[in-house]
């Protein structure tokens, strides 16, 4: 029987209350849905002084669809995304990635904020959000800052969030008329994704107007963004793939219990190749 260590439980109802409590506690653990955080507590991988529950803060529970952009509050449950996001291509990529998280019971507990903030290389949303140039909306006592998601991660399980700060949500521009692809490769018994690839491209009459790709997963540690708009013709698929394979070859990929560097590179080649085919082949 796995029992978490002792901790104080603090439920916050407003952002001000959160900032006050989070600054008072030396080692807080922030939870919204709980899934991974509770699992880490049960395995005693973390021993927080207090668990701060942010699930009741109204500002984190909203989804705002404006004329050109969308804001998803950090507490938004993953299963809800497919019903509440608009029909644009950027949202489509987010929904594709969110729908591959665990199973329906995990998606009904897990939140967008949790998926983004944990910094686990296996998490899905960071890769999709990086591909669409989304921004992290970070709240702190003296205001709000916006940071591109690609700059949000320092290393696995480490984000730029400082004590007393909170991810209010993510913001992204709607994109229309794009084709999207989301691929990942799972090692079941290690509960880890070796590689994750998200791609989004706009093609008009065989001409590539815009093409972005992000790579994540255990192989790379934190999401990496690639802008491939320099290519203009869909017939250049082979060259684009080679360029991406070259990028992968220059990356520092480690041999570890999840596989050899060579294996992980081959996984990435396959995922990249499939994603490129899916968005560029007419």
């Amino acid at each position: 029987m796995k029992i978490p260590p002792n901790f104080k439980y603090i439920r916050t109802y407003t952002l001000d209350e959160y900032y006050e409590k989070a600054n008072q506690i030396s080692l807080p653990l922030i939870i919204s849905g709980g899934t991974v955080a509770v699992l880490m507590l049960k395995n005693r991988l973390i021993r927080p002084e207090a668990v701060i529950d942010i699930s009741q803060i109204p500002e984190l529970n909203i989804v705002k669809i404006n004329k050109d952009d969308v804001f998803i509050g950090a507490n938004t449950k993953l299963y809800k995304l497919k019903d509440i996001l608009p029909n644009d291509s950027a949202s489509e990529l987010i929904v594709k990635s969110a729908s591959t998280v665990g199973d329906i019971a995990i998606r009904s507990m897990g939140s967008v904020g949790g998926n983004v903030c944990l910094g686990d290389p296996s998490n899905d949303l960071p890769v999709a959000l990086t591909a669409i140039d989304a921004q992290a909306v970070i709240g702190k006592k003296d205001g709000i800052t916006y940071l591109p998601i690609k700059n949000f991660y320092i290393k696995p399980f480490k984000t730029v969030l400082n004590k007393g700060e909170i991810l209010l949500g993510v913001n992204y521009k709607m994109l229309n008329g794009y084709r999207t692809s989301y691929k990942k490769h799972f090692i079941n018994f290690l509960d880890h994704y070796v590689g994750i690839v998200a791609a989004i491209a706009k093609i008009e009459e065989n001409v590539i107007k815009d093409f972005k790709m992000a790579i994540g997963g255990e192989a790379v540690g934190k999401p990496v963004k690639f802008d491939l708009s320099e290519f203009s013709n869909v017939d250049e698929i082979k060259i684009i793939k080679e360029r991406m394979f070259d990028y992968v070859n220059t990356m520092h990929i480690e041999n570890n219990r999840f596989g050899t560097a060579n294996y992980k590179k081959k996984v990435l080649y396959t995922l990249i190749s499939r994603a490129i085919d899916e968005v560029l082949k007419l």
């Binding site: 029987m1 796995k2 978490p4 439980y9 439920r11 939870i31 709980g34 899934t35 509770v38 699992l39 049960k42 668990v51 529950d53 699930s55 299963y79 665990g102 199973d103 329906i104 019971a105 995990i106 009904s108 507990m109 509960d191």
Partner: peptide, 30 residues
């Protein structure tokens, strides 16, 4: 039931406000 205790087996599944959740991955206070 309590099965794997890691949220994988689903033996502890209950409905919470109509949605399925794994009760081994949730604190009672939540």
């Amino acid at each position: 039931h309590v099965g794997c205790e890691t949220g994988s087996c689903g033996s502890c599944m209950v409905l919470l406000d109509g949605m399925p959740v794994k009760s081994c991955l949730m604190l009672a206070v939540q």
